[in-house]
Simulated scan of single mutants.
Amino acid sequence: MSNQAVAAGVGLARVMAHCGGSPSAAVHYLAGAMASAPGNPEPYAALAELWRVKPSELAEVVQGADSLRTVLAQSYVNFLRGDMDGAALAMGSVTGVRPDIAWADAPWFGDERFLGAVSADALAEAAMRTMDYGHDLDTETMRERFRPWFQAVDVVSAREPLPEALAKMAILLRACGLTDASFALCDQADSVERIMLTEVVRAGTWRKVGDYQQTVAAFERALALEPANWSLCLDLADVHAEQGDFTSAVRLVDQGLRHEPAELSLRAAGAAYRARLTGSVADLSELIELAREMPNDSYRNLLIDHACAGPALPAELVAEARHIRNG
């Protein structure tokens, strides 16, 4: 949006706020101007003016934020109120929905008052929210839009180096293709305290760069930190299965089942990997039964593909499994 159009939107918002008596409509127009030109300070100045004049009415408008524009306005209102954590979380939510807009170019997001007060936990959660909808962030264009996020991560991680928060921030860096920076943040987290999550994040980053051995090593370190964690057993089993090592995959699933014998995904993975390894009819039959209950279709389909490649399995049983996969 041009500066002239932004000014027009701000002017209309002021009319609606004062003469029209509708803070809600004013917020709508101001947030629209922000969305079209996130770095333009004029809409924020107008919203700050509205906050000074009608704080209770504006608070009511943004309190039950249920639209993209209202959440965007909520992020700045939270900043004005001194609620920097709330401001960060709202910004993360907006960014997750439309990462193709450079929302974080908002002047307040790089303000020292924000960067000096937002907690590491809140910024980490906000960073996770930017990835909620699975958009591809690993492009030069996206990295440019996320530049203020990277600056915020640098500042807050240096000020408050909490290992779990740093690990979550490292996930965003990885998603944006900044794998070296993601590894560095994991190393920084380790220098404070070694935790399981950091190793899991590191494993995912090694997987992204295509290093299988380092991926396995990181997952093994994570499992050593939390040996009773069935989910880690399954993660590591899946990595081995991806590489065709179904003997190790079965061993790790069995290890997880000792800690959580009723877990559906473990039972299904165990049946699939044994069927792939040995051609067991009983295991493929068990997978077929379990597959009908699995909520994650993509993981279910992956397990069926592995199982159906087992040696000398009956064609009719394989067809039944593939019918579930394709259905």
Rank of each mutant, 00 (worst) to 15 (best):
A90N: 10
A90C: 13
A90S: 14
M91E: 06
M91S: 00
M91T: 08
G92Q: 06
G92D: 06
S93T: 15
S93C: 09
S93P: 05
S93H: 10
S93I: 14
V94I: 01
V94Y: 02
V94H: 00
T95E: 07
T95H: 05
T95Q: 11
V97N: 05
V97W: 05
V97I: 15
R98H: 12
R98L: 13
R98D: 08
R98F: 00
P99E: 04
I101T: 15
I101R: 12
I101D: 05
A102P: 01
A102H: 01
A102M: 00
W103V: 04
W103A: 01
W103N: 04
W103D: 04
W103E: 02
A104W: 12
A106C: 08
A106I: 05
P107Y: 11
P107Q: 14
W108N: 08
F109L: 00
F109H: 08
F109W: 13
F109P: 02
F109Q: 07
G110N: 15
G110I: 13
D111Q: 10
D111G: 01
E112G: 13
E112L: 09
E112S: 14
R113F: 14
L115G: 09
L115W: 07
V118E: 09
V118F: 07
V118K: 07
V118L: 08
V118H: 08
S119G: 13
S119P: 06
S119R: 07
A120Q: 09
D121R: 15
D121E: 15
D121S: 12
A122G: 10
A122H: 09
L123Y: 07
A126W: 14
A126F: 14
A127S: 15
A127Y: 03
A127C: 14
M128N: 11
M128D: 12
M128T: 09
R129K: 05
R129V: 01
T130W: 03
M131A: 10
M131K: 08
D132N: 11
D132A: 14
D132E: 13
D132S: 10
Y133D: 00
Y133S: 08
Y133E: 11
G134E: 09
G134P: 03
G134C: 08
H135R: 09
H135P: 00
D136H: 07
D136L: 04
L137R: 00
L137N: 01
D138E: 15
D138G: 03
D138K: 03
D138Q: 05
T139I: 02
T139E: 04
E140V: 04
T141R: 11
T141A: 14
M142K: 06
M142T: 04
M142W: 02
R143S: 11
E144W: 07
E144H: 10
E144P: 04
R145V: 04
R145I: 04
R145H: 13
R145L: 06
R145E: 00
F146N: 01
F146T: 01
F146C: 02
R147F: 12
P148W: 06
P148T: 05
W149V: 03
W149R: 05
F150I: 11
Q151R: 13
Q151F: 07
Q151M: 00
Q151V: 11
Q151D: 10
A152D: 03
A152R: 03
V153S: 06
D154T: 09
D154H: 11
V155S: 08
V156K: 01
V156M: 06
S157E: 06
